[in-house]
Amino acid sequence: MAAAPGARIDHLVTSGTFRLDGGSWDVDNNVWIVGDDAEALVIDAAHDATAIAEALGGRTLRAIVCTHAHNDHVDAAPALSELTGAPILLHPDDLPLWKMTHPDRAPDGELADGQIVTVAGVQLTVLHTPGHAPGAVCLYAPELGTVFTGDTLFQGGPGATGRSFSDHPTIVRSIKERLLTLPLETEVRTGHGDSTTVGAEIPHV
């Protein structure tokens, strides 16, 4: 199935601080916007709600989708929701992490494995890929030849698993069963750093 006319992926990088287990690190995050000239969804509202809203350029924001709830991926989500009226969607297994950053503001809806999120005629399938975080998800858009992997899979291999709520054998299983089974040419758009492909990452997992 071909993507709807005008459907595209926009990208911006925002900068801020990742905090967990008493440590803090300066990080640059990828924010992905999928849509057309009329509507869009945001994958991971990181750090700067104003910059993300400007990148939308007046389009209707249908949803703010969180690949997981580490603070650097969700810190700007409530503010972006306030600016746009868009609901925040998160897998419920990541609520403990979410509450560390936003104890007084719950997400608006849940993500579930196999769920389809549609925007601008493009279908994105939610793949539950725990390991980096319990409720980590990836979003597979076959019409765009792309999977958005958050911090589950990077150029060079799996995301980090050395902190609370993470587990290395679990992330490796998620990647092998849910991501490396996708077409090898599928572009992997990550939460940090450069994009890669499914085929290029097989030797690194």
Rank of each mutant, 00 (worst) to 15 (best):
D151L: 05
D94C: 05
S174Q: 03
G193D: 09
M1Q: 09
H70G: 10
L127H: 12
R8S: 12
P87V: 14
P142K: 08
G109F: 14
D44H: 12
I64M: 01
D26V: 15
D75V: 14
A55M: 13
R173Y: 04
G16H: 13
D10R: 14
T125Q: 10
K99I: 06
R189K: 02
T146N: 03
K99Y: 11
A69K: 09
L180C: 08
G23Y: 12
V188M: 05
G6A: 12
L95D: 03
I64D: 01
T170Q: 15
D21Q: 08
G58T: 08
T129P: 02
D93Q: 12
T161R: 08
T161Y: 10
A38C: 05
V198A: 02
L41K: 01
A69P: 09
I64Y: 00
A200H: 03
I202S: 06
G58Q: 06
H91T: 06
H47G: 00
T161G: 10
E177Q: 13
E143I: 04
A2Y: 04
P92C: 06
A69R: 13
R59T: 06
L153R: 01
I9W: 07
D37H: 10
V13G: 04
T118S: 13
T101R: 15
G131N: 07
T125V: 10
E201P: 03
L80P: 10
A63V: 09
T196G: 07
A38N: 10
I88C: 03
Y140A: 11
Q115F: 10
A112W: 15
L97E: 03
G156D: 07
F165H: 14
N29V: 11
A49E: 06
A63N: 10
T101W: 05
G23Q: 09
L89F: 14
W98T: 00
C138E: 03
T152D: 07
L139M: 14
G157Q: 11
A141Q: 08
D104Q: 14
L97Q: 03
G58M: 06
F165M: 11
L41N: 00
A120L: 00
